[in-house]
Nucleic acid binder design. Sequence first.
DNA 1: TTAATAGTGTCTTTCAGACAATATTAT
DNA 2: ATAATATTGTCTGAAAGACACTATTAA
Lengths: 245, 245
Amino acid sequence: MTDEEFLAAYDPSAFTPVAVTVDVVALTIRAGRLCVLLVERGESPYAGWRALPGGFVREETLDAAALRELAEETGAAMPAAVHLEQLRTYGTPQRDPRMRVVSVAYLAFAPSLPDPRAGGDASGAFWVPVDEVTELAFDHAHILADALDRARSKLEYTPLATAFLPPEFTMTELRAVYAAVWGEDLHAGNFHRKVLSVPGFVESTGTTASRGGERGGPKARLYRPGDAHLLHPALLRPTREDTVR
Amino acid sequence: MTDEEFLAAYDPSAFTPVAVTVDVVALTIRAGRLCVLLVERGESPYAGWRALPGGFVREETLDAAALRELAEETGAAMPAAVHLEQLRTYGTPQRDPRMRVVSVAYLAFAPSLPDPRAGGDASGAFWVPVDEVTELAFDHAHILADALDRARSKLEYTPLATAFLPPEFTMTELRAVYAAVWGEDLHAGNFHRKVLSVPGFVESTGTTASRGGERGGPKARLYRPGDAHLLHPALLRPTREDTVR
DNA sequence: TTAATAGTGTCTTTCAGACAATATTAT
DNA sequence: ATAATATTGTCTGAAAGACACTATTAA
């Protein structure tokens, strides 16, 4: 970096201005389906289109900007236990027609939340099942696809599936998270034994749920997240040989 | 995003200016050691310190900016076969004392390259073994640490170890890549059989190296990269139970 | 009672890792 | 000749996945 390059950037009027934003792909599970938080755009461009929640970065870290945007859209209902991680950054020159916008995308996992609309003040945000999302503004469909890839992969190697659940949960609820995110059912017995065999994934609370399954069955034991940050050995998805190449 | 927010960002003089840069963590293997490409800074701040190569993003994609910076530092010696991927973005407010700088970091894997100094024109870049890197300018030591984590992990799940090698290589050379990146030796026999058992990792050229090992041994067969993008099953690092928590 | 569910047991196959054996080549 | 190296073979234990079984509870 030469001096004149830096000075040119330091004097914004002498250089193409760049805006830095964050966009958040917030995922949750509602009624057994993986859902993403979307907003409806009011202004041009893409007025009336759905988009990921996001906005400009202020005098704050990128993580703080993402958390702030998420809190603004979900309101007071947002629990402290949300998992938030950086996804990747999108900066293709014409991705926003108004100016050069570099957007740092974030991925969030949240337990099932009340509908933001129901909160009284008319938030423009709502949860949409990911398999019903069609077109999105800007390159947000691409960002969402990357986020789903990441989320599916994260469930293999980390215990983050528990971030979609309340502090205590049953093995069946945990399995339902995997089923919703991966889009395929898992064998109940093998899943149960596998989760318990991974050190630090979950720990027993010693208590059981207040009632059995929806249509019968014994009361399930309750678990809480363990202290592991990585699953070892991993909980791999059913093999899809063809997607490897 | 409200109108006034966007307009404030659109008019750079009315908003805190933000500079967007790319920084590249370029890794290669020289003499069996994992090395990173560094430059020596001429100007303040951090004058005389070592830093990752990088610079401002122009009218180009982020990927193109990273590739350009890498080519500028390594010169004509840079092969087309370099692997380049986005690492993550660093934007803590005070990471550059001059102004708000958001840096998109990239990770590159390159085959062993001639020393950039030797190219005639005095490039300021040079390869340094990663275990000899001490202090770096800005938050570059942090970026490098993240890059090494990513690189070590990538070798488990992808065939990218071949990106450190010429188009044809022996099994021993491939094993040396793993040993250099992971910092531990691997069992030759088990590694050999494992690599051949993963579909699409490598394919045989049918030829053998012109001579045997350094101090004797048969001529090794030559392989080239296969068509897999992911290794399945993965080639996992020797287990380190303690790093999991 | 009936059907669904929670949890456990067993078997087979695959794979990682330890170890051994053999053939080939530089010195 | 000697020692190092490439490659293959064998064995053991861990783990995944298929399947079966028992106990418990909602309706």
